[in-house]
Computed example of a mutant assay.
Amino acid sequence: MYKQKTDRELIELLAIHKKLTFQSQLNLKEELNRRNLNENIEDLENTIQEKVSEIKNLDYLKDIGFKADKFGESIKVTRTGRATLIDIIAIVLGIIFCIIGFFGILGLIGSFSSESEFSMFSLIIEIGMIAIGVLGVKFLNGIKRLIDYSGFELLNNNGTITLKKRFDTKLVEIQKNESFLKLKKQSELMVLKLENDDILSANANNIIQKMTISELTKRLKTVANNV
């Protein structure tokens, strides 16, 4: 990312490193070390270490809609109320947008079937309404998430993983040894699985989410040893 930058440009970026993304901070540190510039990068290293510590504490698990609570020799993962609220809002907006899109389709059909004078402005409005309707369909994906994670719970108790999740709307409880817990990359996602069942996922292209789900997997597998 920074190989084409001059030394002066790198030093300027170092001065504002806190405004950079975490991935950019890591890349900047790597490039500065590679060039052996005579610059103090302690602040940059501290900033990175703070972020790593937050990731290890699972502070960013909420960004993928979950939270982890540890008690005794157990760790329990549940969905956050905020994520559920976001899904509900997405569903409401999705319904409204789909209705707008429906009227856009009706208007477009009416424009071509009517004998009245053709209006370019009306056509643009109707196409815009249809585009909003398409967006609404995507928002309705919140229905599946809301159903899938209603009653969700992931628990490691002394090496036994208990998963409560809905499959085809039915709430199912699965118990397996923690050795069946695995993290796999599937397309653009990092998916936490219990044997063949998907539990939750994170964006594989987002380094914070990727490191967070990796840390969660590690915690779930070693919770009994970390007490």
Rank of each mutant, 00 (worst) to 15 (best):
N46M: 08
M120L: 15
F102A: 13
I86Y: 00
D168V: 01
D198C: 12
G110C: 09
I91H: 07
R8S: 10
G128I: 15
K56Y: 05
N205Q: 12
I125S: 04
I161G: 00
L61N: 01
R8M: 14
K3Q: 07
D198M: 12
T217K: 05
K185A: 02
E31R: 01
Q23C: 10
G72Y: 00
E73S: 14
V191F: 06
Q49V: 00
L140F: 03
S113G: 02
I96S: 08
I96F: 09
F66W: 00
F139H: 10
M190Q: 12
G65Q: 08
L123M: 13
L85W: 07
I88D: 08
K182D: 00
I95D: 06
E54Y: 08
K76R: 11
L189H: 04
Q23E: 04
I130K: 11
M129I: 01
N141S: 11
I96L: 14
L194T: 01
I86F: 05
I75N: 03
F102T: 11
I96Y: 07
L20V: 12
K76N: 04
I16Q: 10
G101K: 05
L14Q: 02
L200F: 15
F139G: 01
K62R: 09
K210N: 10
K176T: 00
S116L: 14
K184D: 00
L135V: 09
D87H: 14
E73Q: 05
A202T: 06
E195G: 14
M120H: 08
A202V: 12
Q23T: 12
F121A: 13
N203I: 10
T222H: 09
I124P: 02
S113P: 06
I95T: 07
F22A: 02
K170T: 09
I199M: 11
S187T: 04
E9K: 12
E45Y: 09
K185E: 00
A224H: 07
K70A: 09
N196T: 03
S150D: 00
V134F: 02
